[in-house]
Design a protein around this nucleic acid. Structure first.
Lengths: 194, 194, 194, 194
DNA sequence: CATGAATGAGGGTTCATTCAT
DNA sequence: TATGAATGAACCCTCATTCAT
């Protein structure tokens, strides 16, 4: 299994750094190889082609991202707390990894549509985690049962994503994680006065 | 003013078509020139460079987009109706222009970060329309006054954007505009039971 | 018609020189462009790709080659004289163009099989000229009528080709054209004593 | 002597197969190693470099080729029979080894000139066999004594080679060996009526 | 003897932009 | 204004060869 070899991780991490520092389109394979401390050709012992590096970056990082969130959520017993935890974790993980935040929010979006579709596949498990919280909230009678669930998921993900992207584009000048309770309140209670 | 010359619009419209049909990265200047019926060099009499074409596409189309929405909103008297109208207009304008939807939701996002920052500038007036609705809602005591307004705007825009992108990626298989009331309800009332 | 533009011929001639001087595999497009005095990209305004340059070289040069031979043969009235003329012309044209001789006898043979098949197509008209001489000789009762005509053609072409290749490989140290009568005698009379 | 070790022959035979199946340019050392059942590095214990493999292939196969012909010729007493036998053997040995025919007639010709010169060296003994038949024929007064002997050899070899190449390129659709008497007649008697 | 992971040099092609007409 | 032929910089990937084990 190639994924367990040390150079695999070396290259993945180098790719994140190089993309964050140079931008998506200026990230040559040779730069990644140099940063990883391997020869150009070595890259191709571990990855089919450049696109495969990028998809793998997303898979690896997103895999950890989701796992962390899923673990944290399991320790909460109701949907409201789970949703808050998801928001906090989503924010905190990106807040603590500057490079990763830039890569996921800005750089990887410049990829062509084929690559974007592959990235969407990787994102699927995360969307399913959101879905499960929604379902649980409805079962627990915490969330309304007249919701279009798919729309709810889109609202939650769209809000988090837009919030993080704004934060990254503002060069992370403010505290992201501290916004979590407000975002949670907005999503659960909406704008309206009662 | 170059923007009023007939070839200016010819090139802008050709650009939208070419990008929608070929995708961002396969949209060469020469293709746009051919579709517009002008020589390659002529493009550079109206636009500084390729990036300038793309920004101008966004400016032109977004200008109309926002104007339509602003006009429709002016005829509504309270923030709730205005918000619903904004959502309906946002959806309906993209639903009725297939090419534009693909270009704004998928293709232009592949541009590099400099271009994205310019696009964000163009988006500013739209975000200000959203802001004014939020402010009005708070003044009218329809929206809560303890909200982080910037977050609210990010939630609204993020939700709409994510919803439209999902719809485009699902190849516009379902009715987008009919989702407007549900989206409006979600945003105003949130997920929670009362 | 691109073939009449001056740069087309410029590139063709540069290609012959570069291949003759550097060898088939060391003939980069950039070298050909430099020798032709044009930019690398200009090559691709006149040729689809590198292979297209090579096929075109062969087409152009072989076209002239065959035309010269055909014209010379037309002025002879019997098959024996025509055959001798063909041999003389075949030898003399390659003898007077050092670069062309190297390219056709040594370098272009290193091409892959697809290109070789295309080269064979270009060679077809030459083989047909040989065939017509054979037929005429038989009609004139100068050549025997019990011959396998295809074999005869292969003998003639094979003999000429092998003779020229040997001459080129020996670095053209001896007079090629003066061998023509002997080659002609060999082909017409064979090895045997009577 | 490395040539007697079992892996030496294993690699030679693997090379012929790989070249015949994949073509000269797609025949990587790693493919040959795999087919031979050895590690890539092992190849370099038996051969200096890739070119050395190819020359060795030619040496091995050509050695057997010539030996077979020489043995067969020794049993004939006059030059005419010897020449016919040489033609028959040349054709029959290639006709019965499909891979070898493709490799010698098509694939190995794609090699660069250095390699071709080495191949020519390997061919030398074969050309000397032809030369000896020519000399014998002249001594026996079967062949004319006014011949340019080198040209005769080129005619014979060129004719055989061109005939076999045509046959391989036509995908061996007809019987090659049965052409031998006609080829022999052509070479000995020429085209002319008497 | 044998392995196979690692190396790193090398080139065809695209396309935004220019400028002489 | 308008043209379009010409420019030339920039990069992914393959594969023969090596060498530590």
């Amino acid at each position: 299994m190639k994924k367990n070899k040390p150079k695999y991780k070396l290259i993945i991490d180098a790719a994140v750094e190089v993309i964050a520092e140079n931008g998506y389109h200026a990230s040559q394979v040779s730069k990644i190889a140099k940063k990883a401390g391997v020869a150009d050709g070595t890259i191709y012992l571990y990855f089919k082609n450049k696109e495969d590096i990028l998809v793998s970056v997303f898979e690896e990082k997103m895999g950890q991202f989701i796992e962390q969130i899923a673990t944290a959520i399991d320790q909460k017993s109701n949907a409201n707390e789970k949703l808050l935890t998801l928001i906090e974790m989503h924010f905190s993980q990106l807040a603590k990894d500057h490079h990763l935040a830039i890569v996921t929010q800005l750089e990887l979006r410049q990829s062509n549509i084929d690559l974007r579709l592959q990235i969407n596949k990787v994102l699927k498990p995360y969307l399913m985690v959101i879905d499960s919280i929604i379902n649980e909230g409805i079962e627990q009678n915490i969330f309304r049962d007249d919701l279009n669930k798919k729309l709810v998921r889109q609202m939650i993900f769209g809000t988090l994503d837009e919030t993080v992207t704004n934060w990254v584009m503002k060069e992370e000048k403010y505290e992201l994680v501290s916004l979590a309770p407000s975002v949670h309140a907005l999503i659960t209670n909406g704008l309206s006065t009662r």
